[in-house]
């Protein structure tokens, strides 16, 4: 059986990815597509991210001592606070806090929340394998990768809400069409960014197929391919049908978005395992 601390660490990291990326993405999409009903989603995801960020920090303390005492040990928490995990936590608290504040301020606050989204995503540039390489170009690729993922995740809940509300179908058609146009540029760049990061992390085909890290990465790539298939169906079939006023397309699109959510969660879980529990190939 897996160690309970390992399971808790992976689950918390998953919640952190989901909370930060979805909160940031919802705000990005709200600003780009002038969405109306996004505040509850943004606040909910941001609070999820805040709780997960705090718990993740405390679990790191437990990992340093090997038992629960590390979660409240001033020396361990002080060590973490003074190093990169503390910097990342600071950005997460500030960023997610600004998202909550911005969402509460109404339309005026949307740009406050977008700044918060940027800070929250930027937090991932301070911990992890890429950050440790101290390479500005790789840092830029990582931030683009995360921002693009946030953009993708951020549209899912608002768009599903639009397509399941009969009166909002024309608006849903516009949003899905515009998202598809932007995504046709962003997604290829996202794939290139992901491939670049993977190459620098894994380093060789042998390591890709012969190590637990590489095999988990391959599983993640398979899930991404599945997600691309769903996204292609949305863009090429359901969104154009919705533009033509086909109401059945709305139901298909809602189902497809639900499936996308499931695959996105699986991808985030795979990423959580990769970043918390597996060693990079040496």
């Amino acid at each position: 059986m897996p160690d309970l601390w390992d399971v808790a660490t992976v689950a918390t990291q998953f919640a952190l990815y989901l909370g930060v990326l979805a909160a940031a993405g919802v705000m990005l999409c709200a600003a780009l597509f002038r969405l109306d009903r996004y505040r509850g989603l943004a606040v909910g995801f941001a609070l999820t991210g805040l709780v997960a960020a705090g718990l993740s920090f405390a679990l790191k303390g437990a990992a340093l001592t090997g038992d629960a005492s590390g979660m409240t040990d001033p020396e361990m928490l002080g060590l973490l606070w003074d190093t990169s995990p503390g910097v990342a936590l600071g950005y997460r608290i500030a960023g997610l806090g600004l998202i909550v504040l911005g969402a509460c301020l109404g339309q005026v606050g949307i740009w406050v929340a977008v700044v918060g989204a940027g800070l929250a995503v930027w937090s991932f540039n301070h911990v992890g394998h890429i950050a440790a390489r101290d390479d500005l170009a790789l840092d830029a690729v990582l931030i683009f990768h995360l921002a693009a993922v946030a953009f993708w995740i951020g549209i899912l809940a608002p768009l599903r809400r639009l397509v399941t509300t009969r009166m909002d179908l024309p608006r849903a058609a516009d949003v899905s069409h515009l998202f598809g146009r932007i995504a046709s540029l962003v997604v290829p760049a996202l794939i290139v960014a992901g491939g670049t990061l993977s190459y620098y992390l894994v380093g060789s085909v042998d390591a890709l197929v012969g190590t637990g890290y590489g095999q988990s990465l391959l599983a993640k790539v398979g899930l991404v391919a599945l997600l691309l298939g769903l996204a292609a169906a949305n863009k090429l079939r359901f969104a154009p049908a919705l533009m033509r006023g086909d109401e059945r397309a709305a139901a298909h699109l809602a189902t497809s978005i639900t499936l996308e959510w499931a695959v996105v969660c699986a991808i985030l879980l795979a990423t959580a395992v990769l970043t918390t529990s597996l060693s990079l190939p040496t």
């Binding site: 990992a63 090997g66 990169s84 990342a88 911990v127 394998h129 950050a131």
Partner: peptide, 8 residues
């Protein structure tokens, strides 16, 4: 046990 330079 320890803290790596990458924060892990």
């Amino acid at each position: 046990r320890g803290l790596g330079d990458d924060g892990h």
